[in-house]
Amino acid sequence: MIINFTKAENSNVNIPVSGITNTFLTGPAGSGKTTAAINIVAELSKAKRENSGKRLRIVCMTQKSDWRTLSTLVEPERLKLLVLGDPESEPIHFNPCKIPYGILPGEWSDILADLFCRAYGLLASAKKIVVDVINELYKNAEVFEAAEKSESWKEIVPELSQKVTFSKIYKNIETRMNALADQERIQKDMFARILDRLSSFGRENSVESRIFGNAKRDQIKAMSDMPMT
């Protein structure tokens, strides 16, 4: 379902619960998209499931602090509000280096490095460096050994791999760059570009380090374990 806000005005929109599964709100700044979305979600919290008759439970992930208004419209026991990028507002904590269930370490390191380099416009040579570093850290954490030798590797690999973080990746790359000789200028420049993109993880108290660099917190798993009653 697509709802287009062409200008800010008061209007009533009636949407059946069954039609709200995938909804896209579009419009210029100030047209009321966020307010409408908050009201839609607040109304959804009052709706009941067709098969069980139980009310819906709401999990909201957002980058905008004004979604906190939702906590005044929905009962606390029916709402999980996660504000990305704000460490003081129960943000979404997760470690991207933690390998998902059933994925092999080499496969995940390649995916992670590819996503990182594409997002920051880095070349294939940068990806090779990032892959090598991630694999080294996984090896030190005994992730590869568990994947090769343990029958229950699918359960063990995620737990072992969560010891690896982007903060450790930053420190490893920094150590490698400092070990290069001055005449290896081209390679040093590539390391410097990677470190520039990872610079926030070089600061222990940065927002990025606190939210995405914690080896012990897994908000994604906590969300998946939430009872939906």
Rank of each mutant, 00 (worst) to 15 (best):
I58N: 03
N10R: 12
G213C: 04
I173K: 04
K46G: 02
Q187W: 06
L160M: 12
I186R: 14
D182K: 13
R185S: 00
R78S: 13
L82K: 15
M223N: 03
G19P: 01
V143M: 02
F212K: 05
G202Y: 05
I38C: 01
E151Q: 05
L81T: 03
F191S: 00
D66P: 01
E142R: 15
R78A: 14
K163N: 08
K149I: 09
N12M: 06
L122C: 03
I58K: 11
F201G: 01
E208R: 06
S45H: 12
G121E: 11
A179F: 02
N39S: 13
S161F: 11
A42T: 08
N140V: 08
S150Q: 12
Y170A: 00
E77H: 13
D182I: 05
G106K: 09
L198I: 06
F166D: 02
I156T: 10
N135M: 11
E145N: 12
K46V: 00
L79I: 14
A36Y: 09
P227K: 15
K154G: 02
K188H: 07
L115R: 15
N12F: 08
G106I: 07
R49G: 09
T35R: 14
I194N: 02
T72Q: 13
G202E: 07
S125A: 15
E75M: 06
K128W: 07
T165G: 01
L122Y: 09
I186W: 09
E174V: 06
S45F: 13
P96S: 12
D86C: 05
Q187M: 15
P158T: 09
D218K: 02
I194D: 01
R193E: 09
F144R: 07
E151P: 00
G85P: 00
K48E: 13
K54V: 03
R193L: 06
N22E: 09
Y120W: 13
V59K: 08
K171E: 07
G213Q: 04
V41T: 11
S209D: 10
I169D: 04
A42H: 12
I173F: 05
V143D: 03
F116C: 10
T26A: 13
D114S: 06
K54D: 01
I58H: 05
H93L: 06
E142P: 01
M177A: 05
T21P: 00
P16Y: 14
M228L: 12
I38S: 01
P227H: 14
